[in-house]
């Protein structure tokens, strides 16, 4: 007799069935009672495209490369994010900022090439934590479907947040996600989020 660790375990009943049991009738009726009761229960599903479920506050989605308020890229291609990435999804190539490019890059070094393989990425968020320049963060959107594997290797152009000056609206929208994420409050401590319909 093994030691019972919890009270939940139940001995399996291996008695041979009696004739009445073996025609299953009663148990079937019980089962049908259970199912029919679900007929009248509230439905658990939603009409998806029309209705959407909100993400949880701690949701980690697609990466975004940040710009500062003037629209300059924050990333200095230090490689810390690539180092931190457990899935080795991030590759980059650094380049010197040339004169006349100050309005593009905040530091004198920048990432000439910055790629994240979304098929590898596990959305752990370690890159975000590793980044000293607040250059990368995880948004609340997820990667859209694609027809090929190549399509999932996101280039820098795909990752960069819209220009805050030139494309103000898009920037605002993209920022909104982050804002929502940052405004994480104690009221929402359920890990699955509240059932708040947008």
């Amino acid at each position: 007799m093994s030691v019972r660790l919890t009270n939940r375990s139940v001995e399996v009943n291996r008695k041979p069935m009696t004739f009445l049991e073996s025609i299953y009738l009663w148990n079937i009726l019980k089962g049908m009672g259970i199912t029919i009761s679900h007929l009248f229960k509230k439905k658990a599903t939603i009409n998806y495209p029309e209705q959407k479920r909100s993400f949880s506050k701690v949701f980690r989605g697609l990466h975004v490369l940040n710009r500062d308020a003037e629209g300059r890229e924050n990333c200095t291609a230090c490689g810390l994010c690539a180092v931190a990435c457990p899935a080795e999804a991030i590759t980059m190539e650094a380049a010197e900022r040339l004169p006349g490019e100050e309005h593009l890059y905040r530091e004198e070094k920048y990432a000439a090439k910055y790629e994240i393989n979304m098929l590898r990425c596990i959305f752990c968020g370690l890159c975000e934590e590793a980044c000293p320049k607040d250059a990368i963060y995880l948004s609340q959107t997820f990667a859209p479907a694609n027809y090929g594997r190549k399509g999932f290797i996101y280039k820098k152009e795909d990752l960069l947040i819209p220009h805050p000056v030139n494309e103000k609206e898009a920037y605002e929208k993209a920022l909104g996600n982050k804002a929502a994420k940052n405004s994480y409050t104690k009221t929402n401590n359920s890990p699955f989020g509240d059932r708040v319909w947008e």
């Binding site: 199912t35 029919i36 679900h38 007929l39 229960k41 509230k42 439905k43 658990a44 599903t45 009409n47």
Partner: peptide, 13 residues
């Protein structure tokens, strides 16, 4: 439909 309802779903709509 019945399948959906019995499984707390909505079914084709």
């Amino acid at each position: 439909k019945v399948a959906a309802w019995l499984q707390d779903r909505r079914g084709p709509n």
